[in-house]
Amino acid sequence: MAVEVKQLVKRYGKLVALDHFNLSVYKGEILGLLGPNGCGKTTLINSILGLLTYDKGEIDVFGEELKPDTYKIKQRIGVVPQDVALFEELTVFENIDFFCGLYIEDKAERRRLVNEAIKFVELDKYSKFIPKKLSGGLKRRLNIACGIAHQPDLIFMDEPTVAVDAQSRNFILEGIKRLNENGSTIVYTTHYLDEAEQISDRVVIMDSGQNIADGTLEQLQQKVNQGEIINIELFDISPELIEEMRELPNLNTIEKTGKNKWRLVFDEGNNHVVQLVKFIEEHELSYTQLYSQMPDLNSIFLELTGKELRDQ
Rank of each mutant, 00 (worst) to 15 (best):
E94A: 10
L90K: 14
G101E: 15
Q82T: 09
Y71S: 03
F93K: 11
E88L: 06
A85V: 02
V80C: 01
F98N: 14
V80D: 14
E64L: 02
V80A: 01
D83G: 03
V84R: 07
D83R: 09
K72W: 08
G101L: 14
I96W: 10
I73N: 05
I77T: 05
I77S: 06
I73G: 10
F99G: 00
N95H: 04
Q82K: 07
A85Q: 08
K67W: 00
L66S: 11
K72F: 04
F87H: 06
T70L: 08
I77Y: 08
F87E: 12
F87P: 14
F87K: 08
I77G: 12
F99T: 01
Y71T: 09
R76K: 15
V80Q: 08
G101S: 15
E65Q: 07
D83L: 11
F98T: 09
T70H: 11
P68N: 09
T70G: 00
F98K: 13
C100Q: 07
F87C: 03
F93M: 15
F62Q: 01
V92E: 02
F93Y: 09
Y71H: 08
K74F: 08
Q82M: 13
T91W: 02
E94Y: 00
G101Q: 14
E89A: 04
D83Q: 06
G78W: 13
N95Y: 12
Q82S: 09
F98C: 10
E89K: 12
E89F: 08
P68Y: 12
K72H: 07
F93P: 10
F87Y: 13
V79Q: 04
E88K: 12
F93T: 11
I96L: 12
V79F: 15
T70I: 00
E65F: 03
D69Q: 06
V79G: 04
T70E: 08
L90Y: 06
I77C: 13
E64D: 06
P68S: 03
L86G: 10
D83W: 02
Q75A: 09
E94V: 04
D97N: 05
I73E: 05
K72A: 04
D83Y: 01
Q75N: 14
L90P: 01
A85N: 11
K74I: 11
F99Q: 12
L90Q: 08
V92Y: 05
E94M: 00
D97S: 15
K74C: 10
I73H: 03
D69E: 14
V84P: 00
E94D: 10
V84E: 03
C100H: 05
G78K: 10
I96D: 06
P68F: 10
E88N: 06
K72C: 07
F98A: 12
N95D: 04
C100V: 08
G78L: 09
G101Y: 14
F99D: 12
E89S: 04
P81E: 06
E65Y: 05
F98R: 03
V84L: 11
L90N: 04
Q82R: 04
V80F: 06
V92N: 02
E94N: 13
I73A: 12
F93N: 09
V92C: 11
D97H: 15
F62W: 05
